[in-house]
Design a protein around this nucleic acid. Structure first.
Lengths: 258, 258
DNA sequence: CGCCTATTTGAATCATTTCAAGCTAAGTGG
DNA sequence: CCACTTAGCTTGAAATGATTCAAATAGGCG
């Protein structure tokens, strides 16, 4: 329903949060051909092993995940995406998909053809830089998840997931100071942090019992966010929330701290 | 000791394995100012949180790892790099380092300034594409590690690490068909797969007892690589070993299977 | 109301960690 | 050349965190 130009405005704002654009760049982005599409919960958007000829999706509303399966069918969610995220930059220059992309909730996306997106990157270096940064931040999050799953115990892992969400939802303007809507079942949380649903349940129960959080349906409420942060050992550095590049050339002397 | 032009030749070959270059591109790469440098084992090359103004390193010889630490000091190795790998593409457009980079063994690197590298990317789209692909493959490996650590048991995790190495070392021409030099201690293997050194020891012992591998000092020998692959559930798809882009514009019709 | 999905709980089992100690091989300095 | 040191590997026994299996409960929806 949303008008195409509104969607692309939003896309421009996203890019501009990463690298300052010229009027030319903005125009080029706004001229992108997009196709709006709705995905039902759990629909596969891309499947591992598939030849990639399709499009990249920009999330308008709803949530998506990326995941991988082992040969015995165990699922690891490797990332989670909110409205305003560009899905699939991770596949932009690859021939075959190396992971699955799935709608988590009902989701609306604006799909941009790969050739159009690549051409945009080729002709507009500042847009390219913005997209590159976006892909790098995405990778940074994967590394933090690897640290989370590899080195923290159940409490730490879950607390960390909750903190990351809080930070990202806040940045997207989708959280109140008290909490946010966490659109995941306990089983999905388990698949994201490498635990069974049963153990996620017990761990969350413990966090509730200690009066750190409450969960009412899908709404997550923090009673003691500092306590949760301490359990998680959370620092938002890896999200690069304030990362913005003004000069793709990185001329010495232009270097600025955030 | 190695002559600069030889190093850059190697760099060109690396890029060309990802995207076909024009004579112009080749020249531009070969004109890159490089500084050769030696790192002692365990030296930090980049520290998390540090302002990035320095350079990217191309590994000439030796091995490097990238790692992160939790607030309580647990270490997760998030990737491992061999000669011919470009370190730190993951930081090319970021202001602050989000992970540590460390020499694993004695290591020689050719360091290329960030401004020079960014300028190269800006002026040479095919080189940019090659580097983008390199960064994407790196991210793909992180995701597979996340799956490994999150969903496989100790045997599977270690077997998978060994398989990945076998594939990468073979691609780099550093493995014989019987095995390769694995330059990691059991503790480092543990940090890479999220296990304690003690348990790594016991698990490797079990693999030896089943006549799947032997380890003589740092040399790893496969007796039954198919058996190891089965335990790991290994498929090399995620390494994108045959990924090569011929057309950065991705014009429809040029799309080709590997 | 009945169905389905998600959550909750208990009890038994299992994989992995922890702590502690001993061992081996290689390197260093006297 | 030997004694000393150190880093890495090996092993055992006990403790613990997480899984598994199974069953009960709760909530949303047609």
């Amino acid at each position: 329903m949303t008008h195409t130009s509104l969607i692309l405005e939003r896309f421009v704002r996203k890019m501009e949060s990463r690298c300052s654009l010229s009027p030319n760049d903005r125009e080029a982005v706004l001229a992108l051909p997009v196709m709006q599409r709705t995905y039902q919960p759990n629909t596969y958007i891309i499947r591992e092993g598939e030849l990639l000829q399709r499009h990249c999706a920009f999330i308008i509303s709803g949530f998506a995940i990326r995941q991988k399966l082992t040969n015995v069918g165990a699922r690891q969610i490797v990332s989670m995406h909110l409205p305003g995220d560009l899905l699939d930059l991770q596949h932009l220059y690859l021939n075959y998909a190396d992971h699955n992309v799935q709608a988590l909730t009902l989701m609306e996306a604006a799909e941009i053809g790969r050739p159009a997106l690549r051409r945009l990157v080729l002709r507009n270096p500042r847009v390219a830089t913005a997209m590159w940064i976006d892909a790098l931040v995405d990778s940074s999050i994967s590394r933090e998840w690897l640290l989370n799953v590899g080195q923290r115990d159940a409490r730490g892992r879950i607390a960390h997931l909750l903190c990351e969400f809080a930070a990202r939802m806040t940045a997207a303007g989708m959280a109140s100071d008290s909490g946010y809507e966490l659109p995941m079942t306990q089983e999905q949380i388990g698949d994201a942090v490498g635990l069974t649903a049963v153990h996620v349940n017990r761990t969350i129960k413990a966090l509730k019992a200690e009066n750190l959080i409450t969960r009412d349906k899908r709404h997550l409420h923090f009673h003691d966010i500092e306590g949760i942060r301490a359990i998680a050992g959370f620092s938002s550095l890896y999200l690069h929330l304030d990362q913005i590049t003004t000069d793709p050339e990185d001329r010495p002397g232009d270097e600025r701290g955030a």
